[in-house]
Each structure stands twice: as C-alpha cells, then as structure tokens.
Simulated scan of single mutants.
Amino acid sequence: MNAFKSPWFRLGLGTGLLLLALWLFLSVLREAYDVGYAKARDEGRIALETLRGEHQEQELARARTAETSAKAATQRLQEEVARNDKLAADLANQQRIHRQTTDRLSGEIARVNDLYRKALDAEPEPLPACVFTAGFVRVWDEATGARAPMPETADPVRAAAQGTDAIASEQLDSGISQSAVLAHHVRYAEQCSNVAAQLDALIDAVQEKH
C-alpha cells in the first residue's frame, strides 16, 4: 500500500493517463483526418466526373451544332445548284424557241419579198425593187454597233471636200436587198431576245438569293 502512495507511482500513473489520453486524441484525430480525406477525395472524384461529363456534353452539343450547320449549308448549296440548273435549262429552252422562231421566219422571207398585190383582189406581181443606199447601210451598221462611227476631221476645208465625196458615195446603191435586210433583222432579233432572256435569268437568280 505504501507503493501506491509513493510520489513516483502517482507520477507514473499520471504520465500513463496523459499518454493514453494523447493516444486517444491522436487516434480520433487520425480517424477524423482519414474520414475527411476520404470525403474530400470522393467529392473531388465526383466533381471531376461531373466536369468531364459537362465537357463531353458541351463537345457533343458543339458537334451536333456543327453537323446541323453543315447539313443546312449542304441543303442550301443543293437548292442553289438545283435553282441554277433550272434557270440554265429554262434559258436554254428559251434560246431553242428563239432559234426555232428565227428558222421559221427565215423560211418566210422569200415568200414575203418575191410578190405583192396592189389590192386584195389584184393579181400578185413581182415586188418592185427597193434601193438601200450605202448611207442607209452605214447608219444601220453604226446604230447596231457593227461599224464604228465615222471620225470627224479637224480641217474644215478637207472635211467639206470629203463630205461632198462622202455624200455622193453614200447615195449609191448598196446592193443590199430587202430580203437581206429582213434576214439581218430576224437574226438580230434572236440575239436581242437571247440577251433579254439572259438578263431576266440573272435578275431572277439575284432576287432569289435575297
């Protein structure tokens, strides 16, 4: 009993209790650390997986948007190609019709230039000669752009002399017949019709794009 009352015994007992308490505290602290670490690790893993999932969703959404845009662009291109093909086909068809008209009218030129009647009940007779002067042909060609305009000289005297000669030469018979004039007009009308059809097709193509 004296040993239990010894100061050394009480000191050893107090130290043991202190160490036990310290060990228990450290154990609790270690357990709390492990629990906190595990929780933080799990939460971090969940957050990372969530972030990866969101990133994948964003990438998938961008891919879907790009695919939709590509399909829309392809659709627009196909529609534009089809529209242009239709315009080209319509234009080619109009040009064929214009050529058919030219061929038909060209075949009628001789019939409408060979004979004429003075009255509905009169007998047909040869068409009188129609003289087209060289000046007439020059004006015609300059108007259509088939010939460049005649230049004007800076010398008044020379211009007057040349003017006199030019007037005389332009009063001569050009040798162009009515049939030739009408044939030229028929072909030129076909060209004008083709140009007008091309312009209409171009206007339609531009308007459909806006």
Rank of each mutant, 00 (worst) to 15 (best):
Q75P: 01
V137M: 03
A92M: 01
A160E: 12
R187Y: 03
I176L: 13
G135L: 09
A110W: 00
V181K: 09
V186C: 04
D114V: 03
S106V: 10
A160L: 15
R158M: 12
Y188W: 01
Q171C: 05
N113R: 10
P156F: 11
P156D: 11
E123R: 15
A134C: 13
R104Q: 11
D165V: 13
F132K: 03
I176G: 03
R138N: 14
L115G: 13
S174H: 08
Q94G: 03
G175L: 04
R96M: 07
A159S: 09
N113G: 09
N113I: 14
R187D: 01
R76A: 08
P151A: 15
R96T: 10
G135F: 10
Y188S: 07
W140R: 05
P126C: 00
R104M: 13
A168C: 11
P124F: 04
P126G: 00
E125A: 12
T102I: 10
S174F: 02
A89E: 01
E152A: 14
A88T: 02
G175C: 08
A160Y: 10
A159N: 04
S177R: 02
A89G: 05
H98P: 01
A146M: 11
D173R: 01
L115Q: 13
V131Q: 13
S169N: 11
I97G: 05
A92I: 00
K86N: 08
I176E: 06
R117M: 05
A166W: 12
A146V: 06
A146R: 15
N84M: 04
E152H: 13
R104L: 15
S174M: 03
A189L: 10
I97R: 06
T164I: 15
R147N: 14
A92K: 02
G175K: 02
T153F: 12
A154H: 06
V139G: 10
L120S: 12
S177Y: 01
R158Q: 11
A129S: 07
A161E: 13
V186S: 00
R96N: 09
W140A: 02
P126M: 00
G163Y: 12
K118G: 11
S179K: 00
F136H: 09
K118S: 13
L77R: 14
R117F: 04
E170P: 06
V81N: 03
D121H: 13
E142P: 15
G145P: 03
P124D: 11
A180M: 15
D141N: 08
V186P: 05
A122R: 04
A183Q: 13
E152N: 07
L77Q: 10
A146G: 06
R111T: 12
D90R: 02
G175F: 07
Q100K: 06
D103F: 07
P151K: 07
L182G: 12
G145C: 08
R111Q: 10
D90Y: 05
D165H: 02
H185W: 09
Y188H: 07
K118H: 09
D121C: 07
I176Q: 05
D141H: 03
